[in-house]
Design a protein around this nucleic acid. Sequence first.
DNA 1: CTGAATCCTGTTAGATACTG
DNA 2: CAGTATCTAACAGGATTCAG
Lengths: 133, 133
Amino acid sequence: MSGTHTRVPTGLGAGPVNPEDCPVREVLDRIGDKWSVLVIVLLGRRTHRYGELHRTIDGISQRMLTLTLRALVRDGLVERTAHATVPPRVEYSLTGLGRTLLEPLTALDRWAVEHRDDIRGARERHDREQART
Amino acid sequence: MSGTHTRVPTGLGAGPVNPEDCPVREVLDRIGDKWSVLVIVLLGRRTHRYGELHRTIDGISQRMLTLTLRALVRDGLVERTAHATVPPRVEYSLTGLGRTLLEPLTALDRWAVEHRDDIRGARERHDREQART
DNA sequence: CTGAATCCTGTTAGATACTG
DNA sequence: CAGTATCTAACAGGATTCAG
């Protein structure tokens, strides 16, 4: 809330701006989907097993959980540990890199919580004004 | 980098987690798309006209620019000002609410810039290990 | 100049059934 | 238990054309 704008984010020099080459957008491409942040946040609390995640994240299909986890592992945010027992036991946890992401994610969450009502309000006001056409 | 985890983000109490009722996910639904952050960031620097945005944001179609702007206006993040001249002149700028979003967005951007290579590295390592199957 | 309207496409995600 | 495989529905987004 310093009176002035904060630093301009992102590789936005002066010229045209490209979504393919923009750091923020790159992150959003990874965690902007429907399930990734939920997984990250849960793993930020503690290690979870596959089935635990499946039960805890409401409405996620096995398919999407698998795909989401695989992508996060590939990007080095999540670590997969398979124990060769029977029945199999697979545990997922955040990597060091993944944990560093919790901080900016928390900042975004704080903003979201703080301004949730503002957005809802703006939305309703806007829709009401549209309605009287 | 404080040794411990930061606060757990989001209305994640103990029970199941629902994507429909999660503040962070709610924000991501708004700005997680392909163009919103680019628009927000540009407007964070200064007011822009429609055509300016269209020229500056590389590859955006008129359709998507219009839709993106309309959504941002609806959510109270962006303000639209139409001057009744001919030819018409429409200016877009961030609202107060929109400006507050710049801060957490900048945090995320900083993370992105800082860890860009880590992710690329993890990706390549992972893909290389998959490749030798 | 600032859009709106229409058509068309690829991707994302849900449902369901099956497996080591 | 921890996934795969397959099929389908929904939607985001691009291209093009028209309009105030």
